[in-house]
Design a protein around this nucleic acid. Sequence first.
DNA 1: GAGCACTGC
Length: 641
Amino acid sequence: MQRLPISEVRTDLEKKFSANHVTILVGETGSGKSTQVPQLILGLNNGKEKIAVTQPRRVAAINLAKRVADETKTTLGQDVGYTVRFQNMSSPKTKIKYLTDGMLLRELLLRTNLDQYTTIILDEAHERTIITDLLMGFLKTLLQRRKNLRLIVMSATIDADKFSRFFDGAEVLYVQGRRFPVQRYYLTKPVEDIVDATVRTAIQIHAREPMGDILAFLAGQEDIDKAVDILNDMIQSLPKGVPNLIALPLYAALPPQQQQKVFEKVAGNERKIIIATNIAETSLTISGVRYVIDGGTHKVKVWRHDLGLDSLLTMPISKSNAAQRMGRAGREAAGKCYRLYTETDYYGLKSQSEPEIERCDVAFPILTLKLAGVSDVLGWNWLERPSKAAIMSALMQLYALKALDDEGQITELGKKMAVLPLPPHLSAVLLDAYQKGIADPVLDVVSCLSIENLIMNPHPDKRDEVYEKRLPFITASGGMGDLVVLRNYVQHYRSLSSSSERKEWCKEVYISYRAMSNVEDIRNQLNSYLKAESTNIHAEDKSVQLGPSILNEQIIQCFLTGFVANTALSLPGKMYRTIAGGQTINIHPSSSVFGKNVDAIMYTEYIFTTKAYARNVSPIDLEWLQRKAPHFLGRRTAGDD
DNA sequence: GAGCACTGC
């Protein structure tokens, strides 16, 4: 084992792990807990243990498995391995298996009571993803049945009391991290313009501080691009003899090649400044950073169950986020962190961000519970229970999708929906399409919708050029809307024979090649699940016999099965009014339906940024709506304004 | 006429 802080308390940990069913292990970053604890457990029982270690992210699971296989001098995939979506590097005799939390949840629901494991380690529990939260609830029940199962909950913050209380007073252990000191600086009074403050701080560091890269955190793409532009202008007028400064943006929607630039080393007499969203807080680690500038905010998606609307809000970060950001300056040497808020403001921050499950649509978690046989979802042992209203809204949605029956029991259809790796609404669409014999084309669209950042935004000076290349695909949709346009893209991509042609075309239309190949993986996986899970529905694929416009119409009607609540009727002035809630809604300007005059629309996303926007929009016939949702239209004509 | 954090199956 490597000599990391954890090795100093090794015997102590061994004793506790042997004695306790459940242990909460708090360790700072750099404590080596993710690589060392599994090896330590393995040694407890002469190598007879089977250990699952969960991670919230795929890359983390893969990299940790590689490191531990290295350290133990074994071949990856044998004693030490990993399982993530689309990749399985493990065998039945694997002793330490790293997997994404989603994978463990799937194993729990589909196959076993996790009988194949003797120890489960939930890592990064403090991130409080929906899936980790669900796993904790399920494991609490499972521990009562499986007396020989050991659970270790690992967390990076001191918010361990909550986990301890949840597991009936489980013992909390601490291990030290190996980190370099980071000096903190606060503002003496708050600033108005965060972009300006970031730029000025960066220039000051560059002028006064020894070499070392700078990492700055801002909330969104707009602020980041603005700050990068200003810095690049200022760099032009730096006096001679001052070292060069290179400003780089970093956010998820940036094309992969541009993201890659932040990892490239700069020359000895240069300094880079990376201006990033919270992608650099946990997901990506950049070496060489000595200075952190913390803007103090991030964007958070908050689901309004009363409106059926997501809103994307800029909110203050938590103390835990601030600590994580600061830590980015002290990974390799002592560093400095400049917080662009006052010390008083800092003390006013929440200690933790709100867990995902409290601010998201819980249709998926509720359906998962129902599949696991939980009938009283309100009374389930939630680590954090969503509000009653949120749970009720999820139950209503699932009922409308026919996943639940009148008694709230899961239906056969609901079971099929729950095992598809899709949000419930999209599962409903796909199963409907399968039954109608048009799963094949609908799979194209559903796969696109389950990928983020597929269609990218070109930089303003390339916009016209890119739009021109996209135009034929929009024209070919015959005004049938964005879902059909998406399918046209996929089909064209697939018609290209070589990967170099595909890459070339993706570049032209500014579609992410990486995301597009992911679309194909998802499509294949969904296709095989459909065939395996739906053997009792014998549906011939008849999509090839249909003419294109009839087929497109049927595709949209399948989507209406899942998204009938996401429909709106035309109002004067290019606005629409939602059928379910009566709110005004605008078609997003990125849509192919933007600026068109249609009677009614259906959309797969309803999000509030500066206004309420419908995204992925398709025009629909009022007649279809009358057939699918007479209750919605009936209520309107009754006039209950 | 927008411009939107991040994950996971």
